[in-house]
Amino acid sequence: MKSMLRFRTAKSQRWVYRLLNGLAIAGSVLLCSLLLLPRLPGIELLGIVPNWLLIWVVAWSMKRPVWQGMLAGAVLGTIRDSLSAPHSHYPIHLLSLTLVGFLTARLQKQRYIQEDFISVALIVFAMNAIAESIGAVCNFWQGFREWEAVWRDYQRIVLTSSLLSSLWAPVLYYPLNRWWQYIHALEQSGGK
């Protein structure tokens, strides 16, 4: 009886953790989506803001299986598509962020890269460059602009946004990573 009771409390506790985790995930994604719209002084550079949703996808995919990284990329990419381009023919961000989720999860950081702020910033820089390149190619394919105009914009956008994203990446990565470590530890101890 006693052991059963303990089992039930452990189970309900785990549910509370999961609910809290879900709220934290939804809240942080919402915050990232909202941050795309304003141009706050100090965050903006040449009218470009950090790619918050990409930073989130990288933070999420760092220690998760590939399918979870891709799923998060697809979900957040769709959110960004819905916010940015009603007249776009391609789901540009769906493609780019799914690829980012896939690549980040496949990186095997434990084996090759030490986990610290510098490496997170570097990964975000590289992933943002890849994502913006996909954006540029899709933009060219849509045929709204000539190649030279896309190329000129691409150089400006890719450098500024990668730089800003990698500089702001720790601000998002650090609390999220700490939170997921904390939840993981709690679930492990609660489950036993």
């Binding site: 795309l36 719209l37 009218g47 916010l83 940015s84 776009s88």
Partner: peptide, 14 residues
Amino acid sequence: VIGRSADSWWQQVT
């Protein structure tokens, strides 16, 4: 005007 474009490729305001 309360917000700008959510993407650097498109020119929009909210």
